[in-house]
């Protein structure tokens, strides 16, 4: 079965790296779902939870804020300024600007 190779990267570290059957990420204009075979894409992301559906079932959830999502040949890279399993207590300054300007 086709799968996605997902990486969630913040400036300080790689938060998640692994295979997934699908992901749902908070793009600037709403949730975006990515399945294997997705066309190449670059999208700004807003802030909110993203979920990564694991191959064998189950899912991981990360909270992300501000950044960019890149999809290319089933490789998904999400670069973000905030990524954690905990929701942020306060949004990074740049993410607030995002919400106002873009959203």
């Amino acid at each position: 079965m086709a799968s996605l190779n997902v990486r969630v990267v913040s400036a300080e570290q790689v938060v998640f790296e692994g295979e997934a059957s699908a992901i749902v990420a908070p793009a600037w204009d709403g949730q975006v779902g990515i399945l294997p075979g997705h066309a190449p894409m670059l999208a700004l992301i807003g802030s909110g939870p993203m979920s990564i559906e694991r191959q064998g079932g189950g899912s991981d959830t990360f909270y992300v804020a501000a950044g960019v999502l890149k999809v290319e040949r089933d490789n998904v890279t999400l670069l973000t300024e905030y990524a954690s399993t905990e929701p942020p207590t306060e949004l990074p300054e740049s993410a607030v600007v995002y919400a106002e300007d873009v959203g």
């Binding site: 400036a11 204009d29 066309a39 190449p40 894409m41 670059l42 700004l44 501000a66 300024e81």
Partner: peptide
């Protein structure tokens, strides 16, 4: 020209350049 850009190349660049 190969990527779907959302919202647009300019907008993405404007956001990520400071980063």
């Amino acid at each position: 020209d190969v990527y779907i850009l959302s919202p647009s190349g300019d907008m993405i660049l404007e956001r990520i350049l400071p980063a």
